[in-house]
């Protein structure tokens, strides 16, 4: 098991290097950072000097080598726009993104599983039909549209919830900040969490429903019925448990994409997380932030994959041998 984890981590370094290399080649096409850093009247000679001091004149290979060497010690350089260390900026923004991602995933899981089970058990009930219709909307509407719709209804028309920002936050420990402990923070979280979680929610709902229907047709459920077990025990003790393996895979992998795709939700709600930092970095050609963010996301996916593999083993003992053997 330990060897498996170590092997996975070593593979992840390869993945990170590949991501860094691809990112670096792409950065040559996003524009000239120096023009974004100075006012229009800055003379040509001065621009040239800034470019030189940033090392932008060096060949890409040299820049890449320098970057990897520094990144190995977690030094991702200084943001061009903010003139602050990128590590510090990302650390400041990370709690916002992770909190949003976790809350919306929890929302998606809880509501998605509940709705999935319900629609599977009461296939022809009118509420189940409504859930099905809602899920169709959730799958097909793009995030930015849902976000703007929610803002329009709940902030502008009804005036119930804030349209942007994270509300008041409290510091927990040395670097984490949380909005979960304040009233304004909780209120600010509702709309973005729904927006971000809606897609996963419908996905999970449809997945649970399909799996559940499948499982309910199997022989051991029939036997369970024949043995006279209560409906409750059959549905939740046997059927639901056996539908959870694919759900965990999807939910786990989706957590990665929830964090990565929080970019759009964060932009719509001006949520001060890493995603909006990244998007603005792209607009301003802030290469250090872009590179560090992409690496972070790549790392996140590697870790999540690993965790999902380990969780499999916990849920389904049959998989333990394959995990240890691979």
């Amino acid at each position: 098991m330990i060897a498996f984890i170590i092997r996975r981590l070593i593979q992840s370094i390869g993945v990170l290097l590949a991501v860094a290399l691809i990112a670096f080649t792409m950065f040559r096409f996003v524009g000239d950072p120096v023009n974004q850093m100075v006012g229009v009247e800055t003379s040509a000679a001065e621009r040239e000097q800034i470019r030189k001091s940033l090392g932008l004149d060096d060949p890409v290979v040299v820049q890449f080598g320098r970057y990897v060497a520094k990144a190995a010690s977690l030094d991702f350089g200084i943001s061009y726009q903010f003139r602050q260390p990128v590590t510090k900026l990302l650390a400041e923004r990370m709690p916002a993104t992770l909190e949003l991602a976790l809350v919306s995933s929890a929302f998606a899981l809880a509501v998605g599983i509940a709705m999935g089970v319900y629609t599977a058990l009461r296939r022809n009930g009118w509420l189940a039909q409504v859930f099905q219709a809602v899920s169709l909307v959730g799958v097909s509407l793009p995030t930015f549209l849902t976000g703007i719709l929610l803002i329009y209804v709940f902030s502008v028309l009804l005036g119930w919830l804030p349209s942007f920002g994270r509300g008041d936050v409290v510091a927990v420990g040395s670097w984490w900040t949380t909005g979960l402990l304040t009233w304004t923070g909780l209120r600010a979280l509702i709309l973005p969490a729904i927006t971000l979680g809606l897609f996963q929610m419908t996905l999970i709902m449809r997945l649970v429903r399909a799996e559940m229907l499948e499982v309910l047709r199997t022989d051991y459920i029939k036997f369970a019925r024949a043995r006279g077990l209560s409906q409750r025990a059959i549905h939740f003790g046997h059927a639901l448990k056996n539908t959870l393996v694919p759900v965990i895979t999807i939910a786990g992998l989706q957590l990665g994409s929830v964090i990565a795709f929080a970019i759009i939700t964060e932009t719509v709600f001006q949520w001060p997380g890493m995603g909006i930092l990244f998007l603005q970095a792209v607009q301003n050609v802030d290469i250090p932030i872009m590179a560090a963010y992409l690496l972070f996301i790549a790392f996140l996916f590697v870790v999540i994959n690993l965790v999902v593999d380990l969780l499999y083993a916990a849920v389904d003992p049959r998989l333990k041998s394959t995990v240890t053997a691979s």
Partner: peptide, 18 residues
């Protein structure tokens, strides 16, 4: 002061009085 990059959200924030 808060930056709001998205046009639609910025207008919504003004209209809702935030």
């Amino acid at each position: 002061f808060t930056p709001i990059a998205s046009d639609a959200t910025r207008v919504a924030a003004l209209l809702s009085g935030e």
